[in-house]
Amino acid sequence: MKTVLPMIVTFVGGAVVLLDYFVEGSWISATSNAFLSWSVLLAAFSTFLGGANILFIHVRNLKDRRPNWGLSVILVLSLVAWFVVGVVGTTESDIYKFVWENVYSSLSATMFALNAFFIASAAYRSFRLRGAESAILMTAAVLVMMGRVGIGEAISSRLPMLADWLMSIPGTAGMRGITIGGALGAVTVGLRVILGLERGGTGMSV
């Protein structure tokens, strides 16, 4: 029952939503919309499970005085304080907005900005000439980079055109091929999930 019930729920839910895509009918649309709304509710509930998991792990770190337990103290205090501020003062309160804008947003922007440096370091490693493939990769990358900066245009007015061609013809063709293959793969996985052949969510071995 523990495995059959999730499979039945998956089949009914998936089949109705799929049917709604192909068939017009008020009851099908209504049922499909209801299922989608329930999934949003379930996802919201699972946030509490996630929060419980964080607390469980870090409170245990604290109790057992594991290495770096001081970081767990900061995390638990921040979590509880942020929860209280959000629930008591609502997300419209001044404290909530202040912390969001001055702490969370700044930290997020800092993390995201690191991508610029990581692109450089990853590119440096992958563009090293190790064979024919990396030579093609490096040549294309150098041409695109040169075509995108002023010095490239100063060297030759054709470099920006070449960069555009590389991006819009071979680049787009390759990306579209991957997208079509990926989309067909996604359809196959979706069908397997609906038919109960992909049992990742049921707890049975997949």
């Binding site: 990853a122 991957i178 996604a186």
Partner: peptide, 27 residues
């Protein structure tokens, strides 16, 4: 991953990358 904007990053930074449909064939 099948996320095309992220594939170049994985190809550049990882030892091996499953591209698009290869991930769906993994099972």
């Amino acid at each position: 991953t099948a996320s095309t904007p992220q594939l170049p990053f994985f190809v550049a930074a990882c030892d091996y990358t499953l591209i698009g449909e290869e991930l769906f064939a993994a099972g």
